[in-house]
Design a binder for these strands. Structure first.
Lengths: 257, 257
DNA sequence: AAGGCACTTTGACGTAAGTCAAGGCGGCCA
DNA sequence: TGGCCGCCTTGACTTACGTCAAAGTGCCTT
């Protein structure tokens, strides 16, 4: 599989690792980050991005299954996914669990914490991952100096609101097959924007997590994957997905019944 | 009708109308607005709110059934509900319609437009209403001068994200009765925060709109209102609701089955 | 005051998705 | 290398909610 992340191949485990890490850090400031066109720096000038370099100086590795933060943790920073894959979820007192989003490289996590100074959801790595830590007080400070950064940050928040409303539409009006089709097309488009194949990818989440996100049970998700496969829309082998008929999936969405 | 827009009224037809309108304007700047503790000025000092007065100088009346904006309209301003009641909805190409929120006095509308410079949803008055127009470019400008305003604005956006995630939870994991109970409790709490009764209120929206918001059909909403009434939880007379057993409604939420 | 209209209620029936249960696949660790 | 365990698939049955249809209610207009 050629889905290795270009960011992780670098750090060595030998004597040179110390220097390697320094170089690594140097190379991962925003101004030279390969994700800059997808992430917070989107649309900023070279000079403006260099301001951001002052801000984003800590990175953090999160192992598969570990939490980046939990509901109730005090909020202090936003996080940009540098490599890997995350999910966010809410848990009700009675144990019910709703996945509210999946996050891939370049996406900003933690926006929920700004309003109350506490995180309101849990965010967990679905594979070994790395994030850039963005101290929020400093972001507000820097936004004050770099007007376009402020604007860009507002756009990031607004787009999150729009995304959430799209999920409401999905949960409120779509049937199970439409939900899964919409989900696959959305993943496809996001992988594509990151330079990965849009027809072939590896799901990082379980059927249960997909189901939770889509308001379905895992058996339903599984059955629909099988159905899509029978119909020649996709090829599914466990977590490996190949989209065979993008237009067919899109057609599933356009029709009311 | 005396519902004339103060901005357009300048070329008034007689001498007295001119002065009357000025007094009216004076009374509705943020610094003397009764909603200041619920709206954008929340938590700002007297001095800081007076800066806001420069910004929010236009109000606009929207008649019942009229749109404040539609999906696709160019984005320029946010709107704070001054009086009345609004809904927002998304419409899919095939005609499916999802209500994404209801807005009451003090709440900010239009945040969806910041990300793309176009509004992404429709917002419609459910009764004759009035909004304060907040030109967004000027808000960003003023946020630059008044640090706490900037912070406050970020909190407003973040809370909207958290609210949306709560709706995802509702749509993704709750059964119909739980959804309606959560909806009633939410309305009750918001009316209460505005100084209205939290046990007795008038629904501004139809059963169909409630259903759309909750991912249910109008018949289901109607049946559950009847059931709640039989069980002595609420008294329902068309759109007039009286909550008889708040704890009973809350208990509906706490249990997984 | 009457009639129309938009909204709501209620009943009978249909169905998409959930539940429960059994078995299969594949990766990981001893 | 074998066996365990987490995850996935599939089948048989159940159910919560949707659909369709017919009345009922109250407001608005003329």
């Amino acid at each position: 599989m050629n889905q290795q992340n270009p960011q992780t191949g670098r750090a060595g485990s030998d004597a040179s690792s110390h220097r390697t890490i320094n170089i690594h850090q140097l190379k991962t400031v925003c101004s030279s980050c390969s994700l800059r066109e997808l992430c917070l720096p989107m649309g900023l000038s070279q000079e403006e991005v260099e301001y951001l370099d002052q801000l984003v100086y800590t990175r953090k590795r999160i192992k598969r299954g570990e939490n980046l933060y939990r509901a109730g943790d005090p909020f202090g920073s936003l996080y940009a996914v540098r490599s890997g894959f995350f999910k966010s979820n809410l848990i009700l007192e009675d144990g019910r669990d709703q996945v509210t989003g999946f996050h891939m490289p370049g996406e900003i996590m933690g926006l929920d914490g700004i309003g109350t100074d506490d995180h309101t959801c849990n965010t967990t790595a679905l594979e070994d991952s790395e994030v850039c830590v963005i101290p929020f007080a400093r972001l507000e400070e820097l936004g004050h100096q770099v007007r376009n950064l402020q604007k860009q940050f507002h756009k990031v928040m607004s787009r999150e609101i729009v995304r959430d409303q799209g999920v409401m539409m999905l949960l409120g009006t779509m049937r199970a097959e439409e939900r899964l089709a919409a989900f696959l097309l959305n993943l496809s488009q996001r992988f594509n924007a990151r330079g990965y194949s849009h027809t072939e990818f590896h799901l990082r989440m379980t059927r249960e997590e997909i189901g939770s996100y889509l308001g379905l049970k895992l058996e339903t998700v599984s059955r629909i994957f099988s159905k899509f496969q029978e119909e020649g829309l996709v090829s599914v082998q466990q977590k490996h997905i190949r989209i065979l008929d993008t237009d067919g999936l899109k057609r599933m969405l356009g029709q009311a019944d």
